[in-house]
Amino acid sequence: MFRGSLINILFQTSVVGVLALGETLVMLTGGIDLSIVATMVVTAIVIGGGGSEQQQEMSMSNALPYLGFWLAILVGLAGSIFVGLINGIVIVRFRIPAFIATLAMSLVLAGVALLLTGGAPIYYPDPFFANFVQAKLLHMPYPVWSFIALLLSFGLSRSRIGLMVYALGGNNRAARLSGIPVRRVTILMYTLCGLYAGIGGFLFLARTGSVAPDSGGSFLLTTIASVVVGGVSLAGGAGSVKNAFFGILLLASLSNLMNILLISPHIQDAVSGVIILVALAVNARVNPA
Rank of each mutant, 00 (worst) to 15 (best):
V41P: 05
S215W: 03
A279F: 06
L280R: 02
I45A: 07
G31P: 10
L257S: 06
I47T: 05
A238D: 06
V271R: 01
T191F: 13
L177R: 14
T24I: 06
G49A: 05
T29W: 02
V133Y: 15
G230S: 12
A175V: 03
F129T: 04
N8V: 01
Y124D: 12
A252P: 01
G198H: 04
L220W: 10
L188C: 04
T191G: 09
A289S: 11
L262W: 13
G169E: 08
A113F: 07
L220G: 10
L74I: 13
A78K: 01
L150P: 05
A225S: 10
F94M: 15
G79M: 15
A238W: 12
I86A: 15
G247M: 01
S215F: 12
N87Q: 14
G118S: 03
I96W: 11
A72Q: 03
A135R: 10
A197I: 05
S52Q: 02
L234V: 15
K242C: 00
V271Y: 02
L109S: 08
V42H: 07
L156V: 08
V92A: 09
G273W: 07
I263E: 02
V165F: 03
I32Y: 12
L188E: 08
S5Q: 13
I36F: 07
I9G: 00
L71T: 13
Q56H: 15
A38M: 11
S253F: 15
E23S: 10
G200H: 05
Y190E: 06
T191P: 12
A149F: 15
S218Q: 08
A44K: 02
L152G: 06
R93D: 10
N172K: 13
R176D: 14
G236D: 12
L280D: 02
A113Q: 06
T43L: 11
V282D: 01
L156E: 10
A63P: 01
V271F: 11
Q134S: 13
A72M: 04
R160F: 09
V112E: 11
T102Q: 06
M1W: 12
T29C: 15
V229D: 00
G200A: 13
I263R: 01
D214V: 11
Y123C: 00
I36H: 04
G118Y: 00
F99C: 07
G76M: 10
V227R: 04
V26W: 06
G88A: 11
P97Q: 12
Q12S: 12
D214N: 15
A279W: 03
G4V: 09
M27E: 14
S226N: 07
D269T: 14
M258G: 02
N283K: 04
S61D: 15
V232D: 07
L137N: 03
F202D: 04
L71K: 11
D126G: 00
G118T: 02
G50V: 05
R285Q: 14
N8T: 05
S14L: 04
V286S: 01
G179C: 07
A197N: 08
R184A: 14
L280W: 05
P265T: 06
A279Q: 03
G51M: 00
G84K: 09
A279R: 02
N283S: 15
Q54C: 00
I180H: 12
P181K: 03
P265L: 08
A270W: 01
I276A: 04
K136Q: 14
V182Q: 01
V16F: 02
L257I: 12
D269A: 15
T222L: 13
F219H: 12
S226C: 14
L249S: 01
F129I: 07
I187H: 04
S240G: 13
G84Y: 10
I96H: 09
V75M: 11
Q55Y: 00
F69L: 11
